[in-house]
């Protein structure tokens, strides 16, 4: 079946098998391997991308369910000139990653969370990231990074 979607601003049209999951469409058909597959069972959140601006787990969606949607992956977050998105920058500054495998999903979930909660506090961040597992950091620096990003963004750093 034909599927059409915009990924990071570029329009794609492909013929796909109905059972193709969005994450494999992004990784293997579009070729954007920044989105990782972790648990493969919608628990870990490594495959989180934005669908029309909201975080979703791309391993628990058919590519066909994203027909007509606007998808943003980790590759589409930084500016074209390479300037990191405030969430990416805050992750870097706060050492919110080690092996980096959960990072793309964690960053995308954080972007969505900040959009939904302009006034974030620590409890909201901790609860809001419950769908993303990290086995390196113990979450502490991730929470710090998301709070730092939120305050940078509310202070006007362009997203």
């Amino acid at each position: 079946m034909q599927v059409r979607m915009r990924v990071n601003g570029t329009e794609y049209v492909h013929e796909v098998e109905p059972r193709l999951l969005l994450v494999y469409y992004l990784r293997e058909v579009v070729g954007l391997t920044g989105t990782n597959v972790g648990c493969d069972t919608s628990s870990c959140g490594a495959c989180t991308v934005l669908l029309d601006g909201e975080s979703v787990k791309s391993c628990t969606m058919l590519a066909l369910q994203a027909d007509g949607a606007e998808i943003t992956t980790i590759e589409g977050l930084a500016s074209p000139d390479g300037t990191l998105h405030p969430v990416q920058e805050a992750f870097r500054q706060n050492h919110a990653l080690q092996c980096g495998y959960c990072t793309p999903g964690m960053v995308m979930a954080a972007v969505s969370l900040i959009r939904e909660h302009p006034d974030l506090d620590e409890a909201t961040v901790r609860e809001g990231l419950e769908g993303n597992l990290c086995r390196c950091t113990g979450y502490h620096n991730i929470v710090k990074a998301v709070l730092a990003a939120a305050s940078a963004m509310s202070a006007g750093v362009p997203a």
Binding site: T33, G34, G100
Partner: peptide
């Protein structure tokens, strides 16, 4: 110190074996 590997990991450019 900021880690040298972070920019790649944060932009999806880093390649894991599955990639």
């Amino acid at each position: 110190m900021l880690r040298k590997e972070d920019p790649e990991l944060l932009t999806g450019e880093a390649r894991f074996v599955a990639d």
